[in-house]
């Protein structure tokens, strides 16, 4: 089978101007992947499925990956001339930059008829908060149906074009997306405080201190 680079070039010839980036995988598995843009994702997927040399008829595995915002520290060396006329000094300057995070959906494609694979596709969202939609590939491979629902449920990726996008593993009224890296468990435990320090501390945090009882009036009601 052709390499990912050859595949990218062939796709670019077929879909001029398509956004395609190769992600190399440094591990010994050498399973490189291809990031595809949203605009032509469904067309590219259909092409991969129907192309006689590829025939990727099976979408084996669909999964989400969360890449949170990262703070990148960069160190640059700047030459500062000495105002007193001496030799110029080299000063290291550090700058911090926030690299925006994104959610990623990974598709592992195989060909049952030609017995090759995997070709790995990745779709990325704009960010992790308000631009979380990617095109659904369920119209191309039926196997994406439940797996994309799972990615929606656990990561919060919105699949446009999915026929039945509902939560699948968590219940319908659930709020958050538990597979995200920054997911915080809701404080809705119902535990019995037992005399262990850690449990007692959690219980104290959970149950607000009871308001101080009002001072009993002496014979007030009588």
């Amino acid at each position: 089978m052709e390499t990912v680079e050859q595949l990218r070039d062939r796709l670019l010839a077929r879909f001029p101007g398509a956004a395609l980036t190769v992600v190399t995988n440094p591990s010994p598995s050498a399973q490189h992947s291809l990031v595809i843009g949203h605009a032509q994702a469904v067309e590219i997927a259909t092409f991969l499925r129907d192309d006689p040399a590829l025939r990727l008829d099976q979408c084996s595995n669909v999964t989400g990956v969360d890449w949170p915002d990262k703070e990148v520290t960069e160190t640059t060396k700047v030459t500062v001339p000495d105002p007193a006329g001496g030799p110029a000094k080299v000063v290291a300057q550090t700058s911090k930059r926030l690299e925006p995070g994104y959610l990623e959906v990974v598709y592992h494609l195989y060909s049952i008829s030609l017995r090759h694979g995997p070709v790995i596709l990745r779709l990325r969202t704009g960010n992790r908060t308000d631009q979380v939609s990617v095109p659904s590939l369920t119209p191309v491979w039926r196997s994406c149906e439940f797996q994309e629902r799972e990615v929606y449920d656990l990561y919060g990726v919105q699949f446009t074009g999915h026929p039945d996008l509902r939560r699948i593993l968590m219940w319908d009224g659930f709020q958050d997306h538990p597979m995200r890296r920054d997911y915080v468990e809701p404080d809705d435990y119902q535990w019995e405080p037992t005399p262990h320090g850690e449990v007692m501390a959690k219980a104290k945090q959970h149950y607000p201190a009871a308001p101080a009882a009002p001072a009993a009036k002496e014979g007030g009601a009588a």
Partner: peptide, 16 residues
């Protein structure tokens, strides 16, 4: 293991 990714599969009794 070094940074990277891998997908490994075998034929289980129920499928892949």
């Amino acid at each position: 293991p070094k940074a990277g990714e891998a997908y490994g599969r075998i034929e289980g009794p129920k499928g892949e």
